[in-house]
């Protein structure tokens, strides 16, 4: 899994790539915990280069959302490949995560 961290104003942007599965999701979980530990509350995860996600990866997203909600923080997702969108729907995640087509639109969510 690839992970690039950027700052855009007050928003922490995580650009993700590769696979979010049983062997790799811990990397994202650790990064999320590090960000939360720094007191950051606005997080955007960009899935532009993610080509695979399973329930372990999905679980990390829910964990991050739940932690951020405790501190009135926000987690927004963007740029999920078409063939993977169904999995976010089946998981009920389209009801609890704001999901945008592009990173630019997702940044607008925090404006």
């Amino acid at each position: 899994m690839q992970l690039v961290e950027k700052e855009s104003g007050e928003v922490t942007v995580l650009e993700l790539g590769g696979r979010l599965d049983s062997n790799t999701s811990k990397v994202l979980e650790d990064k999320v915990m590090e960000i939360l530990g720094q007191g950051k509350k606005k997080v955007l995860m960009d899935f532009k280069d993610v080509d695979y996600i399973n329930s372990t990866g999905l679980r990390v997203l829910l964990l991050a959302l739940q932690q951020l909600k405790k501190t009135q923080g926000k987690l927004v997702l963007s740029t999920i490949k078409d063939y993977m969108k169904e999995v976010f729907e089946i998981s009920g995640y389209t009801e609890i995560f704001p999901i945008y087509a592009t990173q630019e639109e997702a940044l607008g969510h925090f404006a």
């Binding site: 329930s55 679980r59 829910l62 739940q66 609890i96």
Partner: peptide, 21 residues
């Protein structure tokens, strides 16, 4: 899957995905 983000249980998703797909 109808509960709020705060109440949602972590787990049980894998088999749900299998049965739905």
């Amino acid at each position: 899957l109808g509960s709020t983000a705060e109440q949602r249980q972590i787990g049980g998703l894998g088999i749900h995905l299998v049965r739905t797909i």
